[in-house]
Design a binder for these strands. Sequence first.
RNA 1: CGGGGCGUAGCGUAGCUCGGUUAUCGCGUCUGCUUUGGGAGCAGAAGGUCGCAGGUUCGAAUCCUGCCGCCCCGACCA
Length: 491
Amino acid sequence: MLAPLPKRSDNFSAWYNELVVRSGLAENASVRGCMIIKPYGYAIWEKIQAVFDAAFKKTGHVNAYFPLFIPKSYFSKEASHVEGFAKECAVVTHYRLKTAEDGVSIVVDPTAKLTEELIVRPTSEAIIWSTYKDWIQSYRDLPMLVNQWSNVVRWEMRTRLFLRSTEFLWQEGHTAHATQSEAELEALQMLHLYEDVARDYLALPLIKGLKSQNERFAGAETTYTIEALMQDGKALQAGTSHYLGQRFAKAFDVMFTNRSGLREHVWGTSWGITTRLIGALVMMHADDDGLILPPKIAPIQVVMIPIYKTAIERMAIVEQLTSCQTELVAKGISVKIDDRDTYKPGYKFADYEQKGVPIRVALGPNDLQHQTIELVRRDTKAKKTIPIQNLSEQVEDWLEAIQANIYQRALTLQQQQTLVVDDYATFKELIANQGGFLLAHWDGTTATELKIKEETKATIRCIPLDGVEEEGKCIYTGNPSNRRVIFAQAY
RNA sequence: CGGGGCGUAGCGUAGCUCGGUUAUCGCGUCUGCUUUGGGAGCAGAAGGUCGCAGGUUCGAAUCCUGCCGCCCCGACCA
């Protein structure tokens, strides 16, 4: 008998850590700060990749792959970019090992020192823009709409599975445009695309907004973000889109000849989502019994569990389930039959609940006799026994209902935890005791933002795009402000 | 890098203060039987360089020295 998970209300972070491991998403690697994404977790990532990749293709983007290593000299061309990442870069200094004098251990060969050190990419702007210099000559080469799916390394101090690890997987889009407005529109288009896909497939309600200057990506003119609010009241940045202006074009000398024959620097964007989204799925939807996956990205949408006493019963029941499976698969539904004889049904029920499979189907001797079948919804735990012939109709109906319900549930929670605050005492109290998105006036200065962060650990998550103009006074300084921003403690 | 803690079987641990037969217990694993509609029961078995190196001692998981690794708190961050 396995011990139950820690409860969210007792210890949210212990609940998260244990759930991620026990549901088979990932585990800590023996390499400090790195994670092993296990098959079930990776299957979710593949689904996420598939839906985003399709959306990128639809908007005209194409995939490519750039090197993991970036020569130090490339990296240092854009000053603020360097400053932003310098503290967390892994550096390759040598290219050979040799056997040590003891004849057993392996040491770095000091004679094999690289003449130019290589940075393991924390992001690829440097290598990509140095390439764009060669690819872009004329307005006919624009826009350049390239994406890559890759891994990056950022030497973090404190790590957590999916939320912050030394190495993580992501997608980074890098585009170049002939005009400023086209680049600005591209950054916004991708932000909207992120929100649409996250909402429609991952069932994540998100707030779109602008990052403050302080929270902006190093090297960007403007950083947009999609911010999610987790069940414990802390915010999670779920994706970003940057308008880069001509900063990288100037740093890497990327120019094109326009229709009038004049040479100009191009305008750029970059945008990304990461394996952190899997962490968001967990912290947004899961409950004390385990994961709850949105049907549209669940690797297994329906799990079927046979219940039997004898080998003869087992054969008949599995046969019936296999025919049900065939019927569902024909409708594009992913179905797993777990007919392992080494685990009992009760164990399997608990296990697939923990894994967040949207619908569980059970078939036993009684069902078989009456030609009925039992279904259980993961999100509501609702149980229903229906005639077998109605199975696919019921499953399709429920998959849709579950997708809608968990989005609605997450949205309601976000709305309940989004509060308008006008005085600093209340602000501090709310942040300390319940978290949430706090809509407050801010005087627009980095100094104020930093003071608030220091005193409350809350940061400006974003300046919401759909916010309204509204005269008010900064919650900290009392200075005039014309719109509310979102404060929260963040992951 | 500053402050605190911990290294004993795949995982979690007792023992260490006060040295003494074969290193404790639980989970997991394996075998057999009974079970199977909500995380099975019983019986048996396998599994250990007690983080590493040195020292003290008749004798070290336990005491001493050095080293290594990891975890927690702080600065950084998708």
